[in-house]
């Protein structure tokens, strides 16, 4: 693999689904070390944005670029994406350990990392139970471990707090802090306006497929969200 990923950029990216406009002319540049909160009501285009960045969706118009010139969809770059979506992306019949070992093996990551990540998301005790028996929060933590196992440089977290209790949230904030310190690009899609704002270096708001607000070092997510949406729907 080449050097570290320094930036990811959407240039006037638009995505249609049939007649529906999911994301419209969205331009956004994310650089290493940034932790970006993506806010917006349901259907605003947040998950489409994640799909474009994860390269599982292609833009209908516009471009998605890495390091300002390379297209992100080449598989070399796709390998650097870690994605926690609204689906857990886990297979219920496997145990937690088997699931992580499979992903590690396919990426070619050292198998010792599996135990490390199980410990990191506090699932060591339950590692040999089938994922189907996990609680929602446990599944979400395992999904996090799965996404971070390959040490991705672009981390996409779609509603990562879903089903997490207070202690698990702490684990999540801790992980995000580590990623930031390691100079990764982190995108957190969230409805959780009470998330600690100091965690984020930047916050954007989407509404009806448009980028309606973009602030560095937000003081309060809920205030920004309210201000942004007021402008759109007076």
């Amino acid at each position: 693999m080449g050097g570290a990923l320094r930036s990811v950029e959407l240039r006037s990216a638009t995505r249609f689904f049939g007649r529906h406009v999911a994301l419209y002319r969205c331009s956004l540049k994310l650089v290493a070390g940034e932790v970006v909160a993506v806010l917006g009501p349901n259907g605003a285009g947040k998950s489409t944005l994640a799909g474009l960045l994860a390269t599982t969706l292609a833009p209908s118009e516009g471009e998605v670029l890495a390091d300002t010139n390379r297209p992100l969809e080449s598989s070399e770059l796709r390998a650097r994406v870690g994605w926690v979506s609204h689906e857990s992306m886990l297979q219920r019949e496997l145990t937690g350990r088997e699931q992580l070992a499979l992903i590690a093996g396919l990426y070619g990551v050292e198998s010792e990392r599996v135990a490390f990540w199980l410990e990191r998301v506090r699932l060591t005790a339950d590692a040999d139970r089938a994922i189907g028996t996990y609680s929602r929060g446990m599944r979400q933590r395992l999904a996090l471990a799965r996404a971070l196992l390959s040490e991705p440089e672009l981390v996409l977290l779609d509603e990562p707090t879903t089903g997490l209790d207070a202690a698990s949230r702490e684990v999540l904030w801790e992980l995000i802090g580590d990623l930031r310190a390691a100079g990764r690009i982190v995108v957190v899609i969230t409805h959780d306006l009470d998330a600690p704002p100091e965690l984020f270096t930047r916050a954007i708001v989407l509404s009806q497929g448009r980028l309606v607000a973009d602030r560095s070092a937000p003081e309060s997510l809920s205030a920004l969200y309210a201000a942004a949406l007021q402008r759109v729907t007076p």
Binding site: K29, V212, A213, D214, R215, S216, L224, A228, R231, V232
Partner: peptide, 9 residues
């Protein structure tokens, strides 16, 4: 056009 003030970056 109405919402530009919030777009900082």
């Amino acid at each position: 056009r109405r919402r530009s003030p919030l777009l900082e970056n």
